[in-house]
Amino acid sequence: MEDDTKLLDRARKHDAVALGEIYDRYAGRMYSYIYAHIGHRETAEDMAAEVFLSMLQALDRGSFARTSLSAWLYQIAHNLVVDHFRKHRPTLLPLDSEVGASDPPVDIVQERWNQDWVRRGLAQLSLDQRQVIALRFGQRMKAKEVAEVLGKSEDAVRKLQYRALSSLRRILERIK
């Protein structure tokens, strides 16, 4: 398998094979990462495609990845997520009223851990906390890899991870 650096060099020259290879290699991960933030399939699909168009535009401008291609793509994806949330305020359900009232848990233990409930909790996190959770648990990255994407030190990522999990825990406690 050709390494990412060579693929990028060829992609810079609009080599269709190289661009197709990059897309095939990373499109699923980009979708998954964006979906973790957005939670809407069509939007995530559309934004995943946007990641690669943005990459091509960046290459045309003479920009190039200072990190790995993977980290660069996640950064592009995250910027798109941030832009998305700037344009479309997250429409979170008022947790205290709607959760539980409209859908009372039958088995509280099972229900607490259902994905909707946790997703609602995740949606309450700050963007950088959600980002670290999405990368660490959604993309199964190590702290070092997360650090590369976020442009932070590993220590900073561990702190952020700790704070994110603590916050999520408090939110889940609150909305149970």
Binding site: L19, D24, Y31, E45, D46, L53
Partner: peptide
């Protein structure tokens, strides 16, 4: 994701690169 959407995304990229 739907396979059609992913294929369409790929086509968008290759079209842009043409």
């Amino acid at each position: 994701p739907s396979a059609a959407a992913m294929a369409a995304g790929r086509q968008r990229l290759l079209r842009a690169a043409s």
